[in-house]
Measured scan of single mutants.
Amino acid sequence: EVTIKANLIFANGSTQTAEFKGTFEKATSEAYAYADTSKKDNGEYTVDVADKGYTLNIKFAG
């Protein structure tokens, strides 16, 4: 089991951190699914992958 950390960075400057656990593939998939659901309210996003994929910096356009 691994933990994927997602740092969500919103257009207004606020941030949120979420953690997803499971296999690398499952946790990563859940992090992207979470970003997709947040996209409806926060606009399109880009992802900067860090820490060999264990940290995702997800920046929303607003």
Rank of each mutant, 00 (worst) to 15 (best):
E1W: 15
E1N: 11
E1Y: 14
E1V: 14
T3F: 06
T3Q: 05
T3G: 03
I4T: 00
I4L: 06
K5D: 02
A6W: 03
A6R: 02
A6Q: 02
A6G: 03
N7C: 12
L8W: 04
L8Q: 01
L8F: 14
I9F: 15
F10A: 02
F10S: 03
F10D: 02
A11D: 06
A11F: 09
A11R: 10
N12M: 05
N12F: 06
N12P: 03
N12W: 07
N12V: 04
N12K: 04
N12I: 04
N12L: 05
G13C: 09
G13R: 06
S14E: 13
T15G: 07
T15Q: 11
T15V: 14
T15H: 10
T15W: 10
T15E: 07
Q16K: 12
Q16M: 14
Q16A: 12
T17M: 11
T17P: 04
T17D: 04
A18E: 09
A18S: 09
A18H: 14
A18W: 12
A18Y: 15
E19I: 14
E19S: 12
F20I: 02
F20C: 03
F20E: 00
K21I: 11
K21V: 12
K21M: 09
G22A: 05
G22V: 02
G22W: 03
T23H: 06
T23R: 06
T23E: 08
T23P: 09
F24P: 05
F24M: 10
F24W: 11
E25N: 08
E25T: 10
E25D: 12
E25L: 10
K26H: 12
A27R: 01
A27V: 04
A27T: 03
A27E: 00
T28F: 08
T28W: 10
S29I: 12
S29F: 12
E30D: 14
E30K: 09
E30T: 06
E30R: 08
A31Q: 00
A31V: 07
A31K: 01
Y32H: 06
Y32T: 04
Y32M: 11
A33S: 09
A33I: 08
Y34H: 07
A35I: 09
A35K: 01
A35R: 00
D36V: 06
D36L: 07
D36N: 12
D36W: 06
D36C: 10
T37P: 03
T37W: 14
S38K: 15
S38V: 15
K39Y: 07
K39F: 08
K39H: 05
K40R: 12
K40P: 11
K40I: 13
K40A: 13
D41C: 15
N42D: 05
N42Q: 11
N42H: 15
G43A: 04
G43S: 04
Y45A: 02
Y45P: 02
Y45Q: 01
T46R: 08
T46P: 01
T46H: 09
V47M: 05
V47D: 01
D48R: 09
D48F: 13
V49Y: 09
V49R: 07
A50V: 12
A50Q: 14
A50S: 11
K52Y: 14
K52D: 15
G53N: 03
G53R: 02
Y54V: 04
Y54L: 13
Y54I: 05
Y54E: 04
Y54T: 06
T55N: 03
T55H: 03
L56Y: 04
L56S: 00
L56A: 00
L56T: 00
L56H: 02
L56N: 00
L56P: 00
I58F: 15
I58W: 02
I58H: 01
I58C: 04
K59M: 13
K59T: 14
K59A: 08
K59I: 15
F60I: 01
A61P: 08
A61W: 15
G62S: 10
